[in-house]
């Protein structure tokens, strides 16, 4: 009893399972097996087509998070397209997790932004502003400014203002004041702009 030592490497070097067997495990009834499989598929491009369709159907949040972590690291057009679909999901946790994953994909997300900011569903455009808020890409601020200038829905405009907030400069004052004029009946928008431009 007391402090004991165990010197053998904790079984570290047991061979990593093949991508094919991990893909099979994505359908295992045990969520922990699925979660580990999803994580283990990091970096394996051939697993992307298997992961993508399973994201929406996965019921265990920890497993879904693992899938998204692995998928986001790919940052390819295929992944971006597939995750963007979920921005329209009725399921709050799916649309926010998808937005978070997209925000870490500066390589592929810019290509789909022009389409997303035109989406007929204003909730999708609100989610797009959420993506742009965290996307490490030099174009993000311009897109947000465009949304503030042109989007017809006040909730999208306020979401875009919020996303732009940390980077706001005096040059944006005009843009923000115009937004207030476009939606004179929205008290929150007026408040937001006053808070932002002082």
């Amino acid at each position: 009893m007391g402090l004991v030592r165990r010197d053998q490497q904790p079984a570290a070097e047991k061979a990593a399972p093949s991508a094919a067997s991990l893909v099979e495990q994505l359908d295992d009834p045990d969520p922990d097996v699925r979660r580990e499989a999803a994580l283990g598929l990091d970096g394996s491009a051939e697993a992307v087509p298997a992961l993508i369709p399973r994201v929406a159907g996965e019921t265990d949040p920890a497993v879904r998070d693992a899938m998204l972590t692995t998928l986001a690291a790919h940052d390819t057009d295929e992944v971006a397209e597939a995750l963007a679909v979920h921005l329209a999901s009725d399921e709050a946790s799916l649309r926010t997790s998808a937005a978070e994953a997209l925000a870490t994909m500066p390589g592929s997300v810019p290509a789909i932004i022009p389409r997303l900011v035109q989406d007929p569903d204003h909730d999708v455009r609100v989610m797009t502003a959420m993506v742009l808020a965290d996307l490490p890409h030099p174009g993000a601020l311009t897109w947000l400014a465009d949304m503030i200038r042109a989007d017809p829905h006040p909730n999208v405009v306020t979401a875009a203002i919020d996303a732009l907030l940390p980077s706001i400069t005096p040059e944006h004052t005009e843009l923000l004041r115009d937004a207030v004029h476009r939606f004179p009946d929205d008290p929150f928008l007026r408040f937001t702009v006053e808070a932002a431009v002082g």
Partner: peptide, 11 residues
């Protein structure tokens, strides 16, 4: 709020 990252409003 409902839509939030990491953990949404319902959860």
């Amino acid at each position: 709020d409902v839509n939030m990252p990491k953990m949404n409003g319902y959860t």
